[in-house]
Amino acid sequence: MSEQVLVADTGVSKVKHVVLVLSGKGGVGKSTVACQLARCFDQLGARTGLLDIDLCGPSVPKIMGMERQLVHTTTKGWLPAFVDPAHARFPVLSMGFLTDDPDAPIIWRGPKKNSIIKTFLEDVRWGELDVLVIDTPPGTSDEHISVCEYLHTFDPDGALLVTTPQNVSVTDVKKELSFCHKIGLPVLGVVENMSGYVCPHCTTCTNIFSSEGGRLLAQEAGIPFVGKIPIAPALCECEERGVNPLTVPEAAASLAPLMEFAKSFLAAPERARKPAADAATATAASS
């Protein structure tokens, strides 16, 4: 391990920006957005970390190609797994790293989940980071309340909401929006995922889950629309194999909106500890 880790601080006190990826609905691509957004940040040269607080169904290890990785304990706290272990770069932490048997269910009620989330934020050696991306489970319950309560003192930059275009999903995301308002978490933008599928046989684009739901939601709620990520088999393929999709041109193309978002997020002047409104307008102006 390099010097950098040895002098690093425990907890998230040296993390400049925190972005939460939220969605009321399950299976809309929160983990995809969280992992790939983190990869975009990393590619842009920002010191990036990725935390997965979906305890019952962690997908981050699979998508990052980091299954069977280990978390180590040290005298100064837990040492997360690294995407680039040689340089101790890009720390990742997930419940998936704490179970021996990948099929073993985590059957935990709220209080136990809250305590592990606190540990993830307090006792893990995140070190000095520019951005920490946090992937969440679906809903507005224990995990979300806990992570927001804890992060409150650190003034997180805000939340990126993920939705699929159909009404059923948009309804759930509206709830998440109301959750953000209730707890005073700024909304950085809305990503519409699984937006259209191009048939490989006849190249007709079908909107499997209808279309435009995300954009309409963003307009209605007056929040920035980050963009649409199409259903891209190349991207699915990368995630199944844990390959970095930014190295695969076909898959990288579908992630363009996230890359744009990451660029404008990092480029926004004086982002650190800025009030919510500024952060939102900065993103809106550039998208």
């Binding site: 978390v71 704490l98 179970t99 073993a104 985590i106 935990w108 540990t119």
Partner: peptide, 17 residues
């Protein structure tokens, strides 16, 4: 049941409590 269903932790990782 709940107690028994916790993740089988590796020895290097301390339990939360």
């Amino acid at each position: 049941e709940i107690g028994a269903c916790g993740p089988e932790r590796r020895s290097c990782v301390p339990a939360a409590a």
